[in-house]
């Protein structure tokens, strides 16, 4: 239980089409992440699945049942919002229990479920508090707890961590990963954060302008991007794109990830001047300008003593090249 099928989902606001035919299949127990630039329709798609928006056309099926006309609460889903969306006038306990209470679940059972969820999220000390008396991280955990107690088939998360600071984000991320393992529920998760996407997902869905660009496991997307957009979107720093002609290649564009370029002072394929160097400790990012292939970003592991205005030689790693045709589709990927 907990599978999802989307078939040619379209959604328009007035005349403006936001989702332009989305087909997607999510298997039971999968952790699927939607990524894409701002405004590409991630939230809209999630809200369509939840039933908060009606699709203009297309079908949404949960466990093989068409839910297009089923009320949100009856779809067996739970959603966690970016802004937490807790009920400000209720205590943590009542926030988590309201859905069950509304469904007519007997009190002792609500108590038990809320207690269990609070235990999983270490919220026991705060059960009697109101949302205003909690920190941001605690509030987000309450929002997650509210989703858990309903024991949904499908969890929907809309950028749940983006209001949290970096350290808390890592913790909560781990917590969500742990939850996914222990609940074995299907989860769909929207994020802007590459690290979140790469670390949490079984499957990443890259959206752009209301369309799906590619669906695949994190490593598939990293190693075999289907087009220029995905190649540029996944991976940080961004992939280098080089004009095929300058490169002497039949492809329109050739992409090389910054970590797939080697640097040497003595000799190599392209001579280049160092423009800027960023020392990150574990990594060193070197920005180059080469006469042959234009600007290049290179990511080296560990510390390196390059400085601006040094003259260096860059060599692409064999098999690290992605070739794209004039429409931006991949011709072949290195590995």
């Amino acid at each position: 239980m907990g599978s999802l099928q989307l078939q040619s989902i379209r959604k328009a606001y007035g005349g403006h089409e936001v989702l332009k035919g989305i087909d997607l299949e999510v298997k039971d127990g999968e952790f699927v992440i939607f990524v894409g630039p701002s405004g590409c329709g991630k939230s809209t798609l999630l809200r369509t699945i939840a039933g908060l928006e009606d699709a203009t056309s297309g079908s949404v099926q949960i466990d093989g049942v068409e839910v297009g006309h089923v009320a949100p609460a009856k779809r067996g889903i739970a959603m966690v919002f970016q802004s937490y969306a807790l009920y400000p006038h209720l205590t943590v306990k009542d926030n988590m229990g309201l859905g069950l209470k509304q469904a007519g679940v007997p009190k002792p059972e609500i108590e038990e479920k809320v207690g269990k969820a609070a235990g999983m999220l270490s919220l026991e000390p705060y059960l009697a508090r109101r949302p205003a008396e909690l920190s941001g991280g605690q509030r987000q955990r309450v929002a997650i707890g509210r989703a858990i107690v309903r024991e949904p088939k499908l969890f929907l998360f809309d950028e749940p961590l983006s209001n949290l600071d970096a350290a808390l984000r890592v913790n909560t991320r781990l917590e969500i990963a742990r939850l996914h393992r222990s609940l074995k529920a299907t989860m769909i998760y929207v994020t802007h954060d590459q690290v979140e996407a790469m670390t949490l997902a079984d499957k990443i869905v890259v959206l752009n302008g209301g369309r799906i660009e590619q669906v695949g496991s994190p490593m598939e997307l990293y190693n075999r991007p289907a087009n220029l957009f995905v190649a540029g979107f996944i991976g940080s720093p961004q992939m280098n794109f080089i004009d095929g002609e300058r490169f002497g290649d039949s492809a329109k564009t050739v992409g090389i990830r910054p970590e797939h370029i080697g640097l040497s002072r003595d000799g190599g394929q392209w001579k280049a001047k160092v423009i800027h160097v960023e020392h990150l400790g574990a990594d060193t990012i070197v920005y180059l300008e080469s006469d042959e292939v234009g600007p290049l970003t290179v990511r080296l592991f560990g510390e390196h003593r390059y400085a601006a205005d040094d003259v260096v030689h860059a060599t692409p790693v064999i098999g690290g090249m992605h070739r794209f045709d004039a429409e931006g589709r991949v011709i072949n990927s290195g590995r």
């Binding site: 939840a50 908060l52 009320a71 949100p72 609460a73 009856k74 889903i77 739970a78 959603m79 919002f81 969306a85 807790l86 009920y87 309201l98 859905g99 509304q102 469904a103 509210r146 309903r150």
Partner: peptide, 9 residues
């Protein structure tokens, strides 16, 4: 919307 999802309508 959270209330809608909780069935409180």
């Amino acid at each position: 919307e959270a209330a809608e999802l909780d069935g409180v309508t």
